[in-house]
Each structure stands twice: as C-alpha cells, then as structure tokens.
C-alpha cells in the first residue's frame, strides 16, 4: 500500500502523482522507472519517475490516460492508495559533459526527460530543450522545462501554442542554422524517437532514446521487453531503458508494441462502461487494509 500524498491535473488527461515510497525515493536517479499495479486483478505497468524527495520519502510520476490502467490510475486522488510499486528500475541516464545537448520530449515524455535535463545542465552542458505536444492543452511543465534548460522551444502540432510543427522540425532548423549539437536525448512516442534518430544518425550525433516496450516483471526475468539493437537482443528493463538510437530497430519495437492492441482496446472499453465500480473496487481494498491497521 503506497499512499498518494498529492494528485493533481497538469494537462489534458495528464496527471501528476506524488506517492509515499521511501525505498524508491532514496535510490532513484534520472531516467529510472517504476512498475505499479492497482488491484488484485491489475496488470503491471512501467512509468518513468519525474523526481523524488528522499527526505519526504516520496516519488513523483506523471501519467497520461491512454489504456485501461492509466485511465483508472488517473481517477485516483490525493489520499488514495496504490497497491504495489516497485523500483527504481533500469539504468540511470548517462550524464556527462558533452557540450551542447538537445533534449526532445513529446508531451508526457517531458516529465521523464526533466530529471535528466536538470542533471545534464548541472553537469555544465548547454541544454536546448524542445518540448512537443499535440496542442496547447498538452503542453506540460513549461516552467520546469525553462528552469532545466538554457534554451527552450515549445512546438505544437496544431500551432495552438509555441511554434507549429514537430520537434524534429526545430531540431532541423537549429542544425540548418549551423548550431553544433553534441548529444541528443529523445523521449516520447516511438515514431517521434525514430524521426529524431533519422535526423541525427547521418550526422553522427550521439543520440539516446528511452524505450517503452511492453514489460511484466521489470527485473529481466520474462524477456517480454526485448528490443533488437542491430542484430542483438536486449532487455529494455535491465539493459535500458535508454539505448543508443543508432542501433535501435524501431520497426521491430513498433511491431512488438502492437502485440496486445485488440486486448488493450477491449479492456479500455470495458473499463469506460464500468468506471465507478472499478474505482470503487480499487478503493475498497484499502478501506479494508486501513481498517485492519
């Protein structure tokens, strides 16, 4: 049982949760993630940690409602509980002094990229942060992004905020202006990360991407999250989640991420028809626990 000490909406269908998880808070480093489960019949889903407070013993995650579990999670409020959280998982982000670093983040990926951006800036890099979102309602953490970077660009698909266009458009513009970029981190949807890699690979710019393959245990035990790096198989949970983009087979990653598409839709539909009961079920298991305690 892990208590939600603060839940607040930060964008359209995007919510930020600060949760009591002292062991994870003590150990978390930028780029690492947790796996959580909401109820006895719940699935385990990985979510990247935005930040943690070792003193308060809390970790902060940012969740966009996409499938059933994220939608259910985003119904929870301050004072509710999460059944299981485990972590911190994966290797921390590579932090070094590279020179000029471009961080490209898509919407909720911004939360994942923030701690790494802060660490890269603290390490003495000139951080260029390009945040992309579908529209103005999905631009998140603008103030924190500005604080974590030396140069900030906001891009929206529809031009409702910042500049219109994809994050790769801004990256291409900067490169066309003759800007020297030494290191790139891209965090977001797979097509976006692939597009970034397509820009940087021919130029030989070292680029890391944070891969979101399907996971179960997160400790390397099941191998479901395997990604193809050149001709080698790697496990995103223990070998990643960040990998050298030039080696990643994005096609295989996209194909593997469709593995349960039908079932994910079925689950989500079932949840939306039965939202209240499902939420009640999650809450009742903690009412019982609280009573026992």
């Amino acid at each position: 049982m892990y208590k939600i000490v603060e839940a607040r909406s930060v964008g359209f269908k995007i919510k930020q949760f600060t949760i009591e998880a002292p062991r994870i808070a003590r150990k978390q480093q930028p780029g690492q993630f947790i796996i959580l489960r909401l109820h006895e019949n719940g699935e385990r889903i990985p979510l990247t940690i935005k930040c943690s407070d070792p003193e308060a013993g809390t970790v902060t995650i940012v969740v966009q409602s996409i499938g059933k579990t994220t939608s259910l999670l985003n119904c929870l409020e301050t004072g509710d509980y999460i059944l299981d959280i485990v972590g911190p998982l994966g290797h921390p982000s590579e932090i070094g002094k590279f020179g000029t670093v471009a961080i490209l983040a898509g919407s909720v990926g911004t939360a994942m990229a923030l701690p790494t951006a802060n660490a890269l800036k603290a390490a003495g890099n000139h951080v260029v942060f390009i945040e992309g979102a579908r529209n103005n309602e999905m631009v998140v953490f603008e103030d924190e992004v500005r604080a974590a970077s030396n140069e900030t660009y906001i891009m929206t698909d529809d031009g409702s905020y910042g500049e219109q266009g994809l994050v790769t458009k801004k990256l291409n513009d900067l490169l066309a202006d003759g800007r020297k970029i030494d290191f790139v981190l891209a965090v977001g949807p797979v097509p976006m990360m692939r597009a970034v890699s397509q820009v940087t690979k021919p130029l030989g710019i070292k680029t890391m991407v944070s891969l979101n393959s399907i996971m179960v245990d997160g400790t390397g035990m099941c191998g479901g999250c395997r990604v193809l790096m050149g001709d080698k198989s790697k496990f995103a949970c223990v070998d990643g989640p960040e990998f050298d983009a030039s080696q990643v087979n994005f096609e295989v990653l996209m194909q593997r991420n469709t593995m349960y598409r039908d079932k994910e839709c079925q689950s989500l539909k079932r949840f939306e028809e039965n939202k209240e009961a499902e939420l009640e079920m999650v809450r009742s298991q903690f009412a019982k626990e609280e009573h026992n305690a």
Binding site: N41, E43, K68, T69, V216, M221, C222, K263, R270
Partner: peptide, 23 residues
C-alpha cells in the same frame, strides 16, 4: 520465453482476461 508466458498466465492470471487486466 516460457518465463513470460507462464508469468502472464500464473502470476498475472491472464487466463482470466478480461477479468484480469494482463493479456
């Protein structure tokens, strides 16, 4: 892997999908 298949079915009760979430 057998580990993944068995973990999904045993630990996560995927045999009971959609009652259980894990597919």
């Amino acid at each position: 892997s057998a580990n993944e298949f068995l973990t999904r079915v045993n630990l996560m009760r995927a045999y009971n999908f959609p009652e259980a979430d894990e597919p």
